[in-house]
Structure formats: structure tokens, C-alpha cells
Amino acid sequence: MRNLLNFLIKYNSWILFLLLEVACFMLLFRFNNYQGSVFFTSANRFAGRVYEWAGGIHSYFYLRTANEELLDRNLFLERKVEWLTEALAGLQQDSAQVNVRDSALSDVRIIKARVVNNTLNRLDNYITLDKGSADGVKNDMGVVGIEGVAGIVYLVSPHYSLAISVLNRKSSINCKVQGTDYFGYLKWDGGDSRYAYVRDLPRYAEIAVGDTVVTNGYSSVFPAGIMVGRIADISDSDDGLSYLLRVELATDFGTLNDVRLVAPQSQEERMELERGVKE
């Protein structure tokens, strides 16, 4: 007993060191699959409040750029609406009435949110948002910025939530090349925050640099047709069996500020079904 006490006293700093490190590592490793760990992230109430306050100041400086971007986007959408109505008018002459707008949005739930914190320089980046379960946010909702896809909600606290950014090695978003049915998974593996990769596109796919990449409706997170980015480069994958696309992301993560959280209305039902299959 005495020896034990002497030992403890002699090596007390070593023991304290080990205890603290064990505590740190438990936090580090349980973060991935432990809901309670939301307390130790920036989605907790205290950090969220501080970030919200700082984000308010920060966003003030970007109002001008945000405005310009909105104008650009608005213009683009107006042109698109015009083009679509024309196309529709042409088709309607000999087909049934289609209400494009309603069918496009009727089945999607949308929540407005503001980014209170966002990083780009880590290997696993997260976005903190100022809406939580009290506002109806749920896990696995999609996060969409002004220009396009930004991430997926990961942890939810009552008033804040944490989303996995596209710039995160865990992120994997199902997308396709617009106008075709070729699909693949959008991945990021560190480095430049403007580019990500889409793997596993078949070699016979007819695609070209500059083509638009959008979400496809296969994943239960995003509705179909949300902008992801443009193809910047096409090369062969390591095994030579498929194409590897380098995609220039539409979202500028450096200035991400106002976002929408989206989820198809049928998301829960569908996820339950898919979970049932896995088990």
C-alpha cells in the first residue's frame, strides 16, 4: 500500500498526463458515433452564440458581394424560366397540362439558416448553422448555398446544428452530369477548397469539360437538379476502368453565409426503408 502511494506521489505528473490524454482521445474517437458529443463542438449553445455574434459582424462586410451574387443568380434563373416556359408552350400543344413549379417544389421541405462558423483549411471541415431541432432541422438534411450544394446536416442541438461540408473526407454526395444519366459520388480529399472529384463515371459516357454537375434524386438527402459545379478536367481513374472528373465547385466556401436546408418530404419514410434493407 505504502509503495503504491509512494509510486503515485512520485509519478503524479505522469499519471495526470495519461489521464488528460486519455480524456482527449476519448473525445476525439467518440466524436464520430456519439450523439452527446455535440456538446464539445461549435454547435453547443455557448460557442454557437459567440459565433453568431461574430458572424453578424462578418456577414455585414460581405453584403455587397452577396447582393451581386444574388443578382447574377436571379438573372440566370429568370433566363431559365423564360426558356422553360417557351419549351413548355411548345410541348403543351399536344400533351397534358404540366405545372412545373408546383411539381418541382411541392415535395421539398425548406428551412432558412445562417452559417455561424465555417472552415476550409482542415482535412475534415464542418459548417455550424444557427438553426436546430427546435426549428425543425433533422439529421441528413441537405445544406444548399446561394450558388449550390454545400453540405449535409450531421449533428443537431436544440438551437444550432453542425453540417459536414462538401470539403470533408466523410462527405459523399450522389450527383450526375446534367442532361445525361451518368452518375457518381462527389468526394473531396483535402487541398484546394475550390475543387472536388467525381469517381466511377463509365468510360463510354459522353461528357465534356465545362458540363454542369447536379445532384440526382437517387440519394435521399438532396432533391434532384441542385447545382454542384462544373467539370474542370477529365482524366482516367487509377484502375483505368472509369473516368475521374475534377469538378470546380459552384459554392464559394470562403464566403458561404446564407443557406437553405432542404429535405425531400418523403425522406424519413425512404431512409427507414433503406435501413430495413441494410439490416
Partner: peptide, 27 residues
């Protein structure tokens, strides 16, 4: 070590990396 632990933990809390900065600051 306690200073290091709490310093790291607070920074982790703000950057959503629980335990990462704390572990290295304690070391």
C-alpha cells in the same frame, strides 16, 4: 497541464475538433 487541457478544449469546442487541440496542448 490543466491550463493546456482547458485551453485546447476551448479551442476544440470552437473548431469542432473535440480533443484534438487539447491532446496536443497537454503534451
Amino acid at each position: 497541464m490543466f491550463w493546456g487541457f482547458f485551453l485546447g478544449l476551448l479551442i476544440d469546442m470552437f473548431s469542432s475538433t473535440p480533443g484534438l487541440n487539447a491532446a496536443s496542448a497537454v503534451l
